[in-house]
Amino acid sequence: MTSNLPGSLEVRDLSCERDGRPLFSGLSFSLEPGSAVQVLGANGAGKSTLIRTLIGSADDFSGDIYWCGTPYPSALPRMRQSLLYIGHKAGVRRGLTPLENLAWYGATRSDALRALEAVGLYGYEDVLCQQLSAGQGRRVALARLFLPSAPALWILDEPLAALDVGGVASLEARMSGHLAAGGMVLLTSHQPVNLESLLQVDLANYQVPWVSGADHLLDLQEVHSGD
């Protein structure tokens, strides 16, 4: 089913900051084959930073991240071979048709057609993506999950946003199938996700307390309230 060897993603005592402001610290969890993690947190809690760190695009972190037992950043090339990432920006080229977009991600024509049918874009495969609606564009990106060549580790930023009820159900079914086949899913979502063996990680539990007196940052608000 999956085109790569199963691995595991392990996060140990991870701390991230953004623009000198600590977001979370002491975050630990592990993602084994067949399991899923949902990252929760308010806006600005650091969900995007966590995801960027996990896919290896941001490197200002302390703590350890391991892929198949190898620490970042040396594990990144191998991790990326098993990675399917769908971010806030869908990664769908507006000047290409859905079929060409999937081909760009390495799909064969027949696989791509089946995947597009699965996300309800049957009949749109030769329409330029710039003519599709925002929701449909999002579906083109999600169609990557329905390709038989989809790699093992899925990291999805708000995959359920802008999907209707039927779309959510079909995506959940696909994720269940992927997990059953030994895949891994890490996603952020504001809405509940119906998946078995779903581990929820709430970034609110790892927020950095403001330590005064130490060489530590203070919140903006505290400074503002002082005058």
Partner: peptide, 8 residues
């Protein structure tokens, strides 16, 4: 950059 394919 805008459609995310540069990130991909």
């Amino acid at each position: 950059f805008e459609d995310g394919s540069l990130e991909q």
